[in-house]
Design a protein around this nucleic acid. Structure first.
Lengths: 107, 107
DNA sequence: AAGTGATATTGCAATATTACAATTATATAT
DNA sequence: ATATATAATTGTAATATTGCAATATCACTT
């Protein structure tokens, strides 16, 4: 096949994997890092900064956006890509809960 | 193309993506969760537990292992898949450092 | 309303990932 | 040494992801 068998896992397990997928590509990590550094909402030069084509960046932004990690003004002249910090913190908490739960060991 | 352009990103950025990839499949999340629950090193029934074929599980274990997240006795009767907690904590720290660095915002 | 600047969408090609059947390798027991 | 149980490897098919050129869309300006 090739498709992940999502139905055999718990929602929590699938959720963790979905969140991880957002960060599983360096371009998306770089985009998030870059956006977070911009203080003045001048975020329209992500393309120049990252070094990938505009459609590719747009595609990655879509993935990030679908995960709920973006907010801001996406239209018109006063464009602004910002990180949805609330959602971002949720992600961090899910990850940390996973990490903390998984530390027990046997040898 | 289809291959990620790794050379345009910093090592740190690529590292974060590589770490995230380990957790970007629910089967691997489930495997890690399952292993961490086993107290007696009897870890040979991951296949039954997860619901994927033995080769598929083996493949996922290889991904987890290549990331340095496994330790234990992989051969013979006294099999034992254990989580390399030290490495696991490293992962958690890298993630948290990324999350914490990326929280600044503009709107 | 036509032009401009910026982002989104579409279509396509290349590579990566996922999954499993068949097989092989390895360690232990008899 | 043979048998058994378990895990790794190989081969193959299907799906997903990545990337970009071409095009379309959208908001604003003049």
């Amino acid at each position: 096949m090739g498709a992940s068998k999502l139905q055999i896992h718990s929602k929590r397990t699938n959720d963790i994997a979905l969140i991880a997928k957002v960060f599983a590509h360096p371009a998306r990590v770089a985009i998030l890092e870059y956006i977070s550094k911009q203080k003045d909402c001048i975020c329209s030069d992500i393309v120049d900064e990252i070094g990938l084509s505009q459609p590719t960046i747009s595609q990655h932004l879509q993935v990030i956006n679908k995960a709920g990690l973006l907010k801001g003004n996406f239209k018109g002249k006063s464009l602004c890509y910002c990180i949805n910090i609330k959602r971002f913190q949720e992600f961090q908490e899910v990850f940390n809960s996973f990490f903390n739960k998984t530390k027990f060991n046997c040898c």
